[in-house]
């Protein structure tokens, strides 16, 4: 889908991926996360250090907010910092089953997962969908003041301006040409 994309992100820095729908932002993030191998090229330094957040939050309606975050902390063998509930404004919702949350609240829970898994490289696919303005500011503050400030790395695909003043890369010029090589179809042309 994309070709000739190359970037390097230093610790404590972030990067915003821009480009129209369908250009391949999600594909690029999934490739960095190691979910699908790139047709050519390589990803360095992510792998075991990367945490990935997709469009979907993977929330189980039957589990409460606290149980959901506890599960992810447990799975990543990380501590669940008490402050997470404040960072993402979830303190009042702790014992609510996730199925009763609104879309925006659910998204906040999905993003709070990133704060408990303790990964240095966060790969965020449209993190602010269905968030209200205040929640967007909270999320931006988390990325800037917590994650990047501690030397973390964030790669975001987003259409809105988070006010993070991160460098941006526009993927539009990198759209692969129709006759581009690669892919399983190539053998049959």
């Amino acid at each position: 889908m994309l070709e000739g994309v190359s970037f390097r992100v230093a610790p404590g820095r972030g990067l915003v991926l821009r480009g129209p729908n369908g250009i391949g932002k999600t594909t690029l993030l999934r490739a960095i996360a190691g979910l699908q191998p790139p047709l050519s090229g390589r990803v360095e330094g992510a792998g075991e250090r990367a945490g990935y957040a997709s469009h979907a939050d993977g929330i189980k309606p039957a589990l409460t907010v606290a149980e959901t975050l506890g599960f992810w902390a447990d799975l990543y063998r990380a501590e669940l910092p008490e402050a997470v509930y404040d960072w993402f404004d979830l303190a009042d919702l702790r014992d609510r089953p996730a199925g009763t949350l609104s879309a925006g609240q659910g998204r906040r829970l999905g993003l709070a997962r990133l704060a408990v898994i303790g990964r240095e490289v966060l790969l965020l696919d449209e993190p602010t969908v269905s968030l209200d303005a205040a929640s967007v500011r909270r999320f931006a503050a988390f990325i800037r003041d917590r994650h990047l400030a501690q030397g973390g790395i964030a790669v975001l695909a987003t259409h809105i301006d988070l006010g993070l003043e991160l460098p941006e890369i526009d993927l539009t010029p990198h759209r692969a040409a129709p006759e581009a090589r690669g892919g399983s179809d190539e053998a049959f042309l």
């Binding site: 759209r175 179809d185 049959f188």
Partner: peptide, 20 residues
């Protein structure tokens, strides 16, 4: 089967050429 895959590949290429 090979010819079917070839048709598929050619169609996909034609589609890509339309979108760009």
């Amino acid at each position: 089967e090979i010819r079917l895959r070839r048709i598929r590949a050619l169609r996909a290429r034609a589609r890509r050429a339309e979108t760009v």
